[in-house]
Design a protein around this nucleic acid. Structure first.
Lengths: 122, 122
DNA sequence: GCGATCTTCAACCAAGTGGTTGACAACGGT
DNA sequence: ACCGTTGTCAACCACTTGGTTGAAGATCGC
């Protein structure tokens, strides 16, 4: 399963500096030094952040002399979006079902013919 | 900005146990004990996980005697999705623009009339 | 070749995290 | 009124993490 990658991706994006770097890379590739510039931390710290992002599959690096241009890998976003949407929809459907039941109860008040029983956890 | 909440949400979902609990809650509310059941960790550990999820705004708890039924709060998902989609689209547009430029270069090879310059980071 | 530039590796540190156990608070059932 | 159930609080522990500094790799310009 890709659970491991989901862990790394979510963990990577849990840090505001790394989210900021992703935002920046969405606008175009950038070298480590360029990425480090706006923050008042050491270049080494930024290098470590990039490592985390690449391990998560969010960023790839190429070679240009001494530079290591960083490149945003957009596919991984889909992995997250898919995970999120799955459970968002599931929860949403549950509400709609509940709404239907409530509407049923309102409109069908004097009939005791309740046809329920589908939600439930395991 | 809601950056702080984004941190908490991403951090919360970086843990596989917590993601699993969210998945479970998407199928319906559950008490702390019910949530703890499938895992071989202490109830206290699960209680702490739920705390993290509620702090992130992903889960809310109500009162039913001694029980504390947990309820998934789906709105927060939108916060994440919005963040993700923003940069995914931005990156995607950049590629399309690049493709256009490449196509232009291929089709319009001998013309030196390059109309570029728009990307750039801030 | 040599120094300058860009980046990573290594060791370290303070703070945070996921787990444990033990105590305790709150509530229902009998 | 008491006991069992349910959940949280508190203190602790091993491990991870984001940061530091210092040294070492690569690679270009001269």
């Amino acid at each position: 399963m890709a659970s491991d990658q989901l862990c790394r991706v979510f963990a990577a994006l849990a840090d505001p500096t790394r989210r900021d770097m992703v935002a920046r890379l969405a606008g175009g590739d950038a070298t480590v030094g360029e990425l480090a510039d706006p923050y008042d931390v050491s270049v080494q710290a930024v290098s470590k952040h990039i490592r985390v992002l690449t391990d998560a599959g969010l960023v790839s690096q190429s070679k240009d002399a001494q530079r290591r241009p960083c490149h945003l890998e957009a596919e991984v976003f889909d992995l997250m979006t898919r995970w999120i949407e799955r459970y968002r929809h599931q929860a949403q459907e549950r509400y709609e079902r509940l709404d239907a039941v409530l509407a049923d109860m309102r409109g069908d008040e004097r009939s005791t013919d309740h046809h329920l029983e589908q939600g439930a956890a395991s």
